[in-house]
Amino acid sequence: MARQDASELEHRLGRQAEAVCRHYLSNGDRQGNYWQVGDARNAAGRSMFVRLRDTPKGPAGKWTDAATGEHGDLLDIIRESLGLIDFADVAQEARTFLSLPHPEPEPASRRGLAPAPSGSPEAARRLIAMTLPITGTIVQTYLRRRGIALLHGTGNLRFHPRCYYKPDDGPTETWPAMIAAVTDLAGKITGAHRTWLAPDGSDKAPIDIPRKAMGDLLGNAVRIGVPGSVMAAGEGIETMLSLRQVLPDMAMAPALSAAHLAAILFPATLRRLYIVRDDDPAGDGARDMLIERANAEGIEAIPLSPAFGDFNEDLRRLGIDALRAGVRVQLAPDDVARFMNLAA
């Protein structure tokens, strides 16, 4: 009887998986179709994933803790988060929860959340929570048309099918968009960058300002890969992804503008920084400032310069072999074998 009762409760809870997570795992947040938190006891962190929708991989409510290998369902979350022991108490808590009204979680006003200030870090986090992975989307199409095919380690790049765009005059529009999560050194989301796209992914959307950032950007970046003793930092997302086509194992950090590049914060493990400059006066200024800051902290700083305006232009106009050759002669010798994709 207990097993039948548990199965029915589990099924009913699964239909409200996000509401369960918001109630019992309040230290987490939504990331696409998953709720991400530290563990089933509601610790802060990002190692546990709760599925919020039924998928071919399993039903809503199933969870896995990547740090410990633990897994379970929403009844387990109720038990662990409240410290309950007896199943009768868990079942009673579940029934109490299910008797409460739980409307659909979107939009924010329906979740009982105060509107986030426009352009704030919280607004950025809520935007990213509504996005999807880029695999199989027009974001992938857009990047491939720019010569960018290697996309490993790009979990901070996301897809939004209908992202709001407010022109200076006229009504608000919606366009598909590539959304990039801006994070601090600890991995906390502090901002977001939007690149609105044409519906077929062939190019950016035909609007006045197809790129905009929001949130707290100073010192932070869109992080691609995991930095160790060596990483590269630059301005644009496509620029850094283009470089990663020939340096697939090097961590990249697009800072989104020359001013923010000059102020980027350094990971504690960093010993060598490649500074990817755009070929313009602002890029020169960011390079010089970053070299000065890096040297002051005992970090070797090496500029990487494109043949044209930026490395994506190099990739598209010259091809990957020429890009590889142009980058190779600018690397420290021990980084050629360590990071460069010589076999491609």
Results as ranks from 00 to 15, higher is better:
residue 6 A to R: 11
residue 9 L to S: 01
residue 11 H to A: 14
residue 13 L to T: 06
residue 14 G to Q: 02
residue 19 A to S: 10
residue 20 V to A: 12
residue 25 L to H: 06
residue 25 L to K: 04
residue 33 N to L: 09
residue 37 V to Y: 07
residue 39 D to N: 13
residue 44 A to E: 15
residue 44 A to R: 13
residue 50 V to S: 06
residue 52 L to E: 07
residue 57 K to I: 01
residue 61 G to W: 15
residue 61 G to E: 05
residue 63 W to D: 04
residue 71 H to E: 15
residue 71 H to N: 09
residue 73 D to I: 04
residue 77 I to N: 04
residue 78 I to H: 00
residue 79 R to I: 15
residue 80 E to R: 13
residue 84 L to S: 01
residue 90 V to M: 01
residue 91 A to L: 05
residue 97 F to K: 03
residue 97 F to S: 09
residue 98 L to V: 01
residue 99 S to I: 00
residue 102 H to R: 12
residue 104 E to F: 15
residue 105 P to N: 04
residue 107 P to I: 07
residue 108 A to Y: 02
residue 114 A to F: 03
residue 115 P to G: 02
residue 116 A to E: 08
residue 118 S to V: 12
residue 118 S to L: 14
residue 126 R to D: 06
residue 129 A to Q: 05
residue 131 T to G: 05
residue 131 T to I: 08
residue 134 I to V: 14
residue 139 V to I: 10
residue 140 Q to G: 10
residue 145 R to C: 08
residue 156 N to L: 07
residue 158 R to Q: 09
residue 158 R to W: 13
residue 159 F to G: 05
residue 163 C to D: 07
residue 164 Y to D: 11
residue 164 Y to A: 13
residue 164 Y to F: 10
residue 166 K to W: 08
residue 168 D to E: 13
residue 168 D to W: 11
residue 172 T to R: 11
residue 176 P to D: 09
residue 180 A to P: 03
residue 183 T to A: 09
residue 186 A to E: 11
residue 187 G to Y: 05
residue 190 T to P: 05
residue 193 H to I: 13
residue 194 R to G: 02
residue 195 T to W: 14
residue 195 T to A: 06
residue 200 D to K: 03
residue 201 G to S: 11
residue 208 D to K: 13
residue 214 M to V: 02
residue 217 L to S: 02
residue 220 N to V: 00
residue 222 V to C: 03
residue 224 I to W: 01
residue 230 V to Y: 04
residue 231 M to C: 00
residue 232 A to Y: 05
residue 232 A to M: 07
residue 233 A to C: 08
residue 233 A to N: 01
residue 234 G to N: 05
residue 235 E to F: 00
residue 236 G to D: 02
residue 236 G to E: 05
residue 243 L to A: 00
residue 249 D to M: 12
residue 249 D to K: 09
residue 253 A to Y: 11
residue 253 A to S: 11
residue 258 A to K: 02
residue 264 I to T: 03
residue 269 T to Y: 03
residue 269 T to Q: 03
residue 270 L to D: 05
residue 273 L to P: 06
residue 280 D to E: 00
residue 283 G to S: 02
residue 284 D to K: 12
residue 284 D to L: 14
residue 285 G to D: 10
residue 290 L to R: 04
residue 296 A to F: 02
residue 296 A to D: 08
residue 298 G to I: 00
residue 300 E to N: 13
residue 306 P to I: 02
residue 309 G to Q: 08
residue 311 F to N: 06
residue 311 F to E: 07
residue 311 F to R: 01
residue 315 L to D: 03
residue 317 R to F: 05
residue 317 R to C: 11
residue 320 I to K: 15
residue 321 D to F: 07
residue 325 A to V: 05
residue 326 G to P: 10
residue 331 L to C: 00
residue 332 A to Y: 03
residue 334 D to G: 04
residue 335 D to A: 07
residue 338 R to T: 15
residue 340 M to Q: 15
residue 341 N to G: 13
residue 343 A to P: 01
residue 344 A to S: 03
residue 344 A to T: 14
residue 344 A to W: 13
